[in-house]
Design a protein around this nucleic acid. Structure first.
Lengths: 131, 131
DNA sequence: TAAAAATACTCCATAGGTATTTTAT
DNA sequence: ATAAAATACCTATGGAGTATTTTTA
């Protein structure tokens, strides 16, 4: 049972559909299907009625716990986030489309992992404008 | 931030050492080191003083949240577990040492994943005794 | 028949393990 | 000198994606 699975489950219950839930949590629809499936097999219960996308009794119980738990996770993040001292919070970056498309993705991915607290903003303009 | 990382962090705080924490959560010592490291980089704080193995102020806050959250996870498991109806709960298995050593591990792994609620008990005896 | 969910498959990130080095007592 | 933690490296698992099939309204 991962936090991520619970996030997705909450989205399922609250949006009432796999596609909508996927959109809410920024995942693909099959990813949400899979997480639900593994959650169900771990807990040993069907959690969601596939016709109506409404939680079963067991699912409803889980939903309530999940909300509490996720709220708690968010509050941890907020609380420790406020602790923050001197720290770069934002990086603005100007590039051409080509660079943005072919060069940046892996770079940004690594950067975001190394500096999860820095918000990255990318602006695409023509090469000359950027220069 | 995963539930597993929080479990390990709680063990670190409560046992006051990496080796002991690792033993408590059934992981290797480097695994615990790594999880702590990634937790710290995600939350942006040093959480544990490496000399004393005591939590920093931020770590202490996290510890309190972690306890609540983990208790919650356990209560979800317990609550939904009690829901259980007709279900095989135990599988007892007799084998030879050779089979147990060379054949069973991947089989048991798959089985345990597919049937997480069935407790597997393995008894090793000589082939003839098992027969 | 159209929309939604499930399945098949592929790939890659990451968690965990062992072996080893570094650090601290 | 010894014990503990960090680092290096490797492997395997599983989570997520795309493409596709199946299901249902």
């Amino acid at each position: 049972m991962t936090v991520e699975a619970l996030r997705q489950f909450r989205a399922l219950v609250e949006t009432g559909g796999f596609r909508s839930a996927a959109a809410r949590v920024h995942r693909s629809q099959p990813a949400v299907s899979q997480q639900l499936k593994s959650l169900e097999s771990e807990l040993g219960h069907v959690l969601l009625d596939r016709k109506t996308c409404k939680p079963t009794p067991a699912g409803l119980r889980l939903y309530e716990h999940a909300c509490r738990l996720l709220t708690d996770v968010e509050s941890i993040r907020r609380e420790l986030g406020e602790f923050d001292e001197s720290r770069v919070r934002e990086l603005r970056l100007g590039t051409s489309d080509t660079t943005a498309l072919y060069v940046l993705p892996p770079v940004i991915r690594r950067f975001a992992r190394a500096m999860p607290h820095t918000h990255v903003e990318i602006v695409n303009r023509s090469t000359s404008a950027i220069a």
